[in-house]
Design a protein around this nucleic acid. Sequence first.
DNA 1: AATGAATGAGAATTCATTCAT
DNA 2: CATGAATGAATTCTCATTCAT
Lengths: 205, 205, 205, 205
Amino acid sequence: MPARTGTMASAATDGDTGAARRPQRADARQNVTALIDAAKTVFAADGVDAPVRSIADRAGVGVGTLYRHFPQRSDLISAVFRSEIDACVDAAPALEAAYPPGEALDLWIMRYTQFVATKRGLAAALHSGDPAYEPLADYFSTHLAPTLERLLAAARAAGDIQQDVDATELLGAVANLSHGGGPGGAVTPRTDRMVRILLAGLRAG
Amino acid sequence: MPARTGTMASAATDGDTGAARRPQRADARQNVTALIDAAKTVFAADGVDAPVRSIADRAGVGVGTLYRHFPQRSDLISAVFRSEIDACVDAAPALEAAYPPGEALDLWIMRYTQFVATKRGLAAALHSGDPAYEPLADYFSTHLAPTLERLLAAARAAGDIQQDVDATELLGAVANLSHGGGPGGAVTPRTDRMVRILLAGLRAG
Amino acid sequence: MPARTGTMASAATDGDTGAARRPQRADARQNVTALIDAAKTVFAADGVDAPVRSIADRAGVGVGTLYRHFPQRSDLISAVFRSEIDACVDAAPALEAAYPPGEALDLWIMRYTQFVATKRGLAAALHSGDPAYEPLADYFSTHLAPTLERLLAAARAAGDIQQDVDATELLGAVANLSHGGGPGGAVTPRTDRMVRILLAGLRAG
Amino acid sequence: MPARTGTMASAATDGDTGAARRPQRADARQNVTALIDAAKTVFAADGVDAPVRSIADRAGVGVGTLYRHFPQRSDLISAVFRSEIDACVDAAPALEAAYPPGEALDLWIMRYTQFVATKRGLAAALHSGDPAYEPLADYFSTHLAPTLERLLAAARAAGDIQQDVDATELLGAVANLSHGGGPGGAVTPRTDRMVRILLAGLRAG
DNA sequence: AATGAATGAGAATTCATTCAT
DNA sequence: CATGAATGAATTCTCATTCAT
């Protein structure tokens, strides 16, 4: 579990006496941020199984600090992905507003594909069965899935798709298809083509 | 220390047919078989990155023996998959003969899915970029791809599919989709559904 | 498992002066020292190719600790030899001050011989061509060679030697001649005799 | 693959009863020769610690055959060197006849140097203290030493050298000095220079 | 006699994780 | 709180040696 100091702290301590303003708290916060940034880079480069040490080094902190904030590797993975997942979720409304449902669906999936492409090992982690990754899978289910669900419903309502498909399943499938992007993590044309075929499949009767 | 073969046991169990003790020479063949069998099981359980030792142990041979027959890990992987790939290839003609092109295509893909489902890490290995796995990728290209190509061509000729898709790419995509089958390696309904959607996508204009 | 330091023992043995228990942090220094001491002994006994493990064991640390401080074997070798090389270098001035050039040269070479005698495999390492040992060879070149160069120049100026000889080459030759000292590492009379002949050779026209 | 037995009996076995004409004897002889040749090459390339297998492979025989003829590694080393030692010994008379004693001594030593230069690890083996190499050391003592002794005595009688030096010791010293020849095994200028200085040392009063 | 398959003991190296400072 | 030293299990790979065929 990541620094659960931060979450409640924000609101609760905001009203604090103005005096205590530069505690160690801010430091810890900075470390957490640095670690997440470092992990983001390292995960993209070497996959989510990269050595803990390389992440700590890149963040400029000791491994002990990493373990303090992220006792489980999956905690770090979750933390890394959470912000990007959130960004992905946040991208939906604009698409929904600007495009017809079917197109919005497609565009959002492509957006999601880009997110997944840089996460080497993400799909493997999600499907590893390792209980440590359950929180991550849950985050998928509770955040991305509802968004996709909504997009799917709209497209279905518009008559664009007939298939009845589970959003979580579809998220997993697209993640799987995105495997094997180059080291840089770019979406390959290959991935792109396959995802499009899958999307086409949703249209079929 | 050499193979502690049960020399005296041989006479007593001479009538025995199949139960091989611990062989030699001509039975290097048997060791190879045992290794492939062991690897098949271990790969299915722990993925293709499982420790060499665990495979050797399960096969009842020393690691040296494993290395003798399969100097590279990819050699073993290839050996394990080759027979199944061949079986997959061999399954095509019957389907082509018995079903209309589009249906034959679908059925063969499902057959292929079953093969891939038990190979944890297969897709990852194929896409790892590690040159050690190139022979394996080649085997895919030279054996499975032509078969699928033929099925695709027939289906296209029959007007079943419009999409122009590369066979190797499609093989990779289906392999990716098949990730995450349970430890047992069965094709999950989830995988099945996603593959069907992909197949449906091939039909779309 | 971390260092099982004898925490409670400390008070009882507080009066103790030198006998370090199993330290930490600041005592990484002590570990380094212990490793160098252990390596010195092991190298003398089994040569510089002795198993890493045996050195770590003798030092009472894990192999990981050894690797932390000396990532390359040559790093350890260098560390072991450096202090002795330095001692060897430091011995020169006194000799130069107390003896005429020719004699000082001879005495210093004998001193150097004593150093080399306990380093089984040192000469082999120096000549192995293995790039890992280049730092060590460099240390020879940059520390011992100048010293010998100076002694040679003085002896030459005094008319003691006519031969024009490269200091590094001569160091290597003497090291080679010193091979085969008993396990104890003492300078054998045999080595002594051969080195003296070589030194005599330097005098010849 | 079994030995390509029966190369057809040689002239040597002609005296045999005409019946028994295709003995294994000739084959074994051939294998021994092939092994020695192979070992000579491999030793020069990789040193006397080269893997047994590489020698057997190069000789085109199984390792079992190697072990049959040379149960100990030192047996093979001895066998390899013996012929060259003999050649070295045989070179002496011609030099003694054609040159004055001092020059003959120098030339023979240089000849010996050439022999040693291609034997990576020979000197180390001689001095390893491993009892397995005693026969080899003995061969040195009983074959090369007397030759050198004779050359030394002649040079001493001619007034060329004053030093009283043990032949075996001198052989060892020159062998040591020859360490570090390039992979090809050529005598390096460095080695040459040092040996010449040693020889000069023999002249000194 | 020859062969080469099999064995398994080493040896090197990496890395997750703990915990003294 | 942070640090990073220490640990040692785990894993890969090599090679000398034996012995069934």
